[in-house]
């Protein structure tokens, strides 16, 4: 496996595999702290206030305080919950979002598992989250949790379909489901990213509407997939308290929380990989060595995480019927048309 620097450095033994597994885990924890701070600060920026200012310089260690608070909170298990399922749900949820990190290439030299079906794999493991949410919602023995769980499952299953179509279009364009192959095909500057139709002569711009539609569909779908506003009806505070995690507290709530943030990164990373060249530098070979690739990848992905946070504090929540209308009657037909367009381009491409 030449695509993995860890195996080259430490040899093909169990310790290097442990390191490979540990790196994304450490990353998720650090990233979650950054994202929490981002959430707080972007929220206050949008609402024209200061946000947390007292914990450290300008409140930068606020997320650590939040996590410490969550960890030392009493772990309450309500009396009438279904204990085994109640306790398993956060783990299933976290496993689902963490499993996706197995195929996310942070750089051309570091991808934990270089699967040939990488893109499809990420899509498949996201279904664990549905099960986790249903498990948590059902076992909490609470009407609101149950409603949140059902809403969430219905939403995630519906939005999977247009998302699958846009993934299919990218697969047709790159003729591969391997993450690294998809990214390598987008080399040579931002002009060759899939959002501009991949590498090809100038008339690829004729297909720009299709790629843009696919990108928008994927991004909107990913918002629904991660239960972010405007699709956060599974946890709509004004209707159903907090949805499927109403009864959770302390460490178990933290697991749900981390899973949500990890999911945000996964979908942003996927947007980056599929449409914005993954770890490729936007300037061709300039600053395109394996170390800088990590920086580019994180910059692009974090930008989309930022967009998600930004949208959360800008847009109102949609209603349930509107939610279903958007996916089945708007996004799905557009996804089909865009897929046909991209398939045509993939066929015509020299």
């Amino acid at each position: 496996m030449e695509s993995n620097i860890i195996l080259q450095l430490f040899g093909d033994n169990i310790w290097s595999y442990l390191i490979i597994v540990a790196i994304p885990l450490v990353f998720v924890i650090i990233y979650a702290l950054v994202a929490i701070l981002g959430e707080l600060k972007v929220a206050s920026w949008v609402q024209d206030r200061l946000g947390p200012m007292r914990t450290g310089w300008k409140g930068v260690i606020q997320p650590i305080a939040e996590v410490v608070k969550l960890l030392q909170k009493e772990d309450i298990t309500p009396k009438n919950v279904n204990k085994p399922l109640f306790n398993t749900a956060p783990f299933v949820m976290f496993v689902g979002s963490f499993a996706a990190f197995a195929v996310i290439p942070f750089s051309s030299k570091f991808i934990p598992a270089d699967l040939n079906v990488g893109l499809f794999y990420v899509f498949a493991v996201s279904s664990f989250a549905v099960i986790g949410i249903l498990m948590g919602g059902w076992s909490s023995n609470n009407k609101y949790s149950m409603l949140g769980g059902i809403r969430s499952a219905a939403q995630m299953i519906s939005y999977e379909i247009p998302m699958a179509l846009s993934i299919l279009a990218i697969a047709a364009l790159s003729q591969s489901l391997n993450m690294n192959t998809i990214i390598e095909l987008q080399n040579g500057g931002f002009w060759n990213w899939n959002i501009f139709g991949g590498s090809g002569p100038w008339y690829k711009l004729l297909f720009l509407p299709f790629t843009l539609i696919l990108f928008l569909i994927y991004f909107i779908g990913s918002l629904a997939e991660t239960n972010r506003t405007p699709f956060d009806i599974p946890e709509g505070e004004s209707e159903i308290v907090a949805g499927y995690h109403t009864e959770y507290s302390g460490m178990k709530f933290a697991m749900f929380f981390f899973a949500e943030y990890a999911n945000m990164f996964v979908v942003s990373a996927l947007v980056t990989i599929m449409f914005f060249g993954g770890w490729q530098s936007p300037f061709g070979d300039f600053l395109n060595d394996p170390i800088m690739q990590i920086v580019w990848f994180l910059l692009k992905s974090m930008f989309f995480v930022f967009v998600q946070i930004w949208l959360r504090w800008t847009l109102p929540r949609v209603r349930v019927d509107q939610l279903m209308y958007i996916t089945w009657k708007v996004m799905l037909p557009f996804a089909f048309i865009a897929f046909l367009g991209i398939a045509t381009w993939a066929m015509l491409k020299p």
């Binding site: 899509f123 996201s126 099960i131 499952a153 999977e160």
Partner: peptide, 10 residues
């Protein structure tokens, strides 16, 4: 995983 966990089990 896709069909059984994501579809049938749900």
């Amino acid at each position: 995983i896709m069909i059984y966990v994501g579809g049938i089990l749900v």
